[in-house]
């Protein structure tokens, strides 16, 4: 199985944000909000750090 970096990051973000939501929140609405927030944060922070590192990549 070959996945690129972004696809791997999406799978990581999905699994971890869902598990963290169930670990830390009690109600369903809180869990949904937290999972969506954490998933987007994972993606945005990773993409942001990627862009920050881009000038040093060569």
């Amino acid at each position: 199985m070959i996945l690129n970096h972004f696809q791997t990051m999406v799978i990581f973000g999905l699994a971890v944000s869902l598990a963290f939501a169930f670990l830390s929140k009690k109600s369903t609405s809180e869990r949904v909000r937290y999972a969506v927030w954490a998933f987007l944060a994972f993606l945005l922070v990773a993409i942001g750090i990627g862009w920050l590192m881009y000038p040093f990549s060569r």
């Binding site: 199985m1 799978i11 169930f22």
Partner: peptide, 17 residues
């Protein structure tokens, strides 16, 4: 159910990669 699918998904894809 959630923990099972989260851990299994990560472990299987990690090994398949």
């Amino acid at each position: 159910i959630v923990y099972f699918f989260a851990v299994v998904m990560l472990a299987l894809i990690g090994l398949w990669m």
